[in-house]
């Protein structure tokens, strides 16, 4: 465009043409017409160091781990992916077959992963239909609890039953509930009396009484039961106690002063 204007200007020079010529030639000028701007431009991007380098790290092996139709069991990883700040890996919650599907009712573009119980089943399920669910549980006869066992023993307390030990099958550890497996009772003879102490398995494989049992023993001890109960507002008791304390302190102070004085004198003497 500048050349075109230049060509025209030869024939009919005008102010506009001269200005155009000036602007066209300005790019060929060596010495700048204007002074260099005094302001300095700082870098907006880190140019050195680690900033621009490491873009070729090792792959993180994300993506699908199971394809459509594969049989999975609970815990199997179906798809590895990263979320914001955490891992959004998808895993199976039920045994079944993997299905990749879209659900326009939930989202237009997103793809979903699901597990169906039967090979022929499809996803998503119809919105108003009964959900397909599996129980995934089995019924077991509950073992007798310790309370029931004890009461059972009491019921046939006559010694004929307990003496015939061979008739009673030994308790199988597996049949006992978890709670019973973690407790054991030791019998000790104290003052000719049989004392039962229940020990519980505490963390760190230590068998000891539970804290509340220790506390109960302390609360039921002779010292605890013989202590007078505190009555708020009992001024007479408070006065007696205070006067006893004052008297005791006075006595102690007098003794202490005497002993201190002695010591001092001994030191000086030494």
């Amino acid at each position: 465009m500048a050349l075109h204007q230049l060509h025209r200007s030869i024939r009919a020079p005008s102010l506009a043409a001269l200005a155009a010529l000036e602007s066209a030639l300005s790019s060929f000028r060596i010495s700048p017409q204007r002074a260099i701007p005094s302001g300095r431009r700082n870098a907006s991007h880190q140019a050195q160091g680690r900033a621009n380098g490491p873009k070729d790290g090792a792959g993180k092996r994300l993506g699908a781990k199971k394809t459509d139709g594969m049989y999975v069991v609970p815990g199997n990883i179906l798809y590895k992916q990263r979320g914001t700040g955490r891992d959004h890996t998808i895993h199976a919650g039920v045994p079944g077959y993997v299905k990749y599907y879209t659900d326009p009712a939930l989202h237009k573009k997103r793809k979903y992963i699901g597990v169906v119980f039967e090979r022929g089943n499809t996803l998503p399920q119809p919105p108003n239909a009964v959900r397909r669910r599996k129980l995934g549980m089995l019924a077991y006869q509950m073992p007798l609890t310790t309370v029931q066992r004890e009461t059972g023993d009491l019921a046939n307390a006559d010694l004929s039953a307990s003496s015939d030990d061979a008739a009673i099958p030994p308790p199988v550890l597996q049949e006992q509930p978890q709670e019973a497996r973690k407790t054991k009772t030791i019998r000790t003879r104290r003052d000719g009396e049989l004392v039962e102490t229940k020990l519980t398995l505490r963390p760190g494989y230590q068998w000891r009484q539970t804290n509340w049992e220790i506390a109960r023993t302390a609360l039921q001890s002779k010292a605890a039961t013989s202590a007078k109960t505190y009555k708020p507002g009992d001024r007479f008791a408070a006065w007696r106690k205070r006067s006893a304390r004052v008297a005791k302190n006075a006595e102690r102070r007098s003794i202490g002063r005497a002993s201190k004085g002695k010591k001092k004198s001994q030191k000086q003497a030494a």
Partner: peptide, 15 residues
């Protein structure tokens, strides 16, 4: 009946 029945998870055979 069935007050003494307890339900427990069924074991899923691993792959």
């Amino acid at each position: 009946s069935g007050g003494d029945v307890e339900f427990k998870r069924k074991r899923v055979e691993p792959l």
